[in-house]
Design a protein around this nucleic acid. Structure first.
Lengths: 232, 232
DNA sequence: ATCTTTGTGTGTTATAAAACATAATTATGT
DNA sequence: ACATAATTATGTTTTATAACACACAAAGAT
């Protein structure tokens, strides 16, 4: 398993990033790539630590979050395979401002950021890849600021459900979200208490917008949910 | 005035960015740099428009903001001379997600993004400059999400005052904020209604943390304000 | 299997902040 | 200089959401 997952990613260009590199560069990546396994809920790195590696999610699901006042947690971003994270703080030359944890058992790879920077200096496409990613994430964060501060509770939860849908998609039935979050995590995505996440979710069930079976959420009326998310 | 301001910026390396370029590159910048003047409150660009230029604030003050539900505006970031903005959307290959407007009469310069990208491809330092800026801004936005959603009204306003202090500094008296915002803008920075910004500001005056004279805000107890901003 | 912990669901109360209302002041245009 | 509009200020009411309380179910531990 150790190297095969990586070879697969690189050779099949599952991740955009690798297709930008030449053979020699790919060689150096493979030589320095380290595989790590994380259990469900295990912290990958924590706020205030110093960044040293770029992280690559190979299998599983990861949340990036910030712990705020009174132990309240805000989920900032969700990661899916094959995505990269943990490089922002290094580029900014500052400690992490958010933490990362596995939402389920996950396999990740690391690469020293010094190597990434070295490759980047030689290969403009790699630099451009990060500029593009950072720019998209920044736009997303700015949008999230307004979503979380100005929308009402129903709008924020509907928004969270749509984020899950867009990030992880549906199961084979084309309607069950392919992620099973605790109500608490749902609340932490939507800036509300767990009680209110549960209550609001029950409301959506009563309105036949979704069907809930434990942590399985089946989206019945996506159009309506998007509408609520927009004007809520 | 037309070119002199630019020559001054470039020659004196007032902006970090120019020191990264060689003579030939500086030449091309100067040839393509366009000066624009904006009146107070004039919109520089608006959400959903397509980005074409990078903007350089030479003189004045600029706010970046998003209009949210019910006409409520959220100020995302403040710009001071000599800072660059407006490039994120271009790099992300998407329309602007926020608008920019002059907070006071301002002088700005534009440079076509295609030129910036061309220079960037040749000059790694320029690419690294943008990666650094984007990374810092992204960290700032992620932090702002938690600040605005989890802090109470006093904490949010104190935070806004400290942001103003850190961005624009003090007048010669070493205590009066070097920016004169309408209460409405103060509210739009702090995610609250104008009424509450006024009320909370009056509270700070009563507690002798600040002195207010119209739009002039004199910081009396910065330590206490930082404390309120942190735990509020 | 039983105990303990953790997560889910709902009703009730408390409260922070918005919404609304109305003056008083300050700017702005003619 | 005056009229009109915009901004600042403050009091009152309403409301969205947090906080609290408790029951029940599910999952782990001994």
């Amino acid at each position: 398993m150790i190297k095969s997952a990586l070879e697969k990613i690189i050779s099949e260009d599952l991740a955009e990033i690798w297709s930008l590199l030449n053979g020699e560069e790919k060689r150096r990546i493979i030589d320095n790539f380290q595989i790590h396994n994380f259990k469900k809920n295990q912290v990958i790195y924590a706020e205030k630590e110093d960044p040293e590696f770029i992280w690559c999610l190979i299998k599983g699901k990861v949340k990036k979050y910030k712990d705020g006042v009174g132990g309240r947690q805000q989920i900032i971003r969700l990661i899916r395979p094959v995505q990269y994270f943990g490089y922002r703080a290094y580029f900014a030359k500052e400690p992490y401002v958010s933490s990362a944890a596995a939402l389920e058992a996950s396999t990740l790879g690391t690469l020293p950021m010094v190597l990434v920077e070295e490759l980047m200096e030689k290969n403009y496409k790699l630099a451009r890849f990060f500029i593009h990613e950072l720019s998209r994430n920044l736009g997303g964060s700015d949008t999230k600021i307004v979503n979380l501060t100005q929308k009402h509770i129903r709008g924020r939860l509907a928004e969270a459900l749509m984020v899950l849908r867009d990030n992880y998609g549906y199961e084979d039935d084309n309607s069950t979200l392919k992620i099973y979050l605790a109500r608490e995590d749902l609340a932490n995505m939507s800036n509300m208490t767990t009680s209110n996440a549960i209550r609001t979710l029950s409301g959506f069930v009563a309105e036949k917008l979704i069907i809930v079976d434990g942590r399985r959420i089946k989206i019945i009326n996506e159009t309506m949910l998007r509408k609520i998310s927009k004007h809520g």
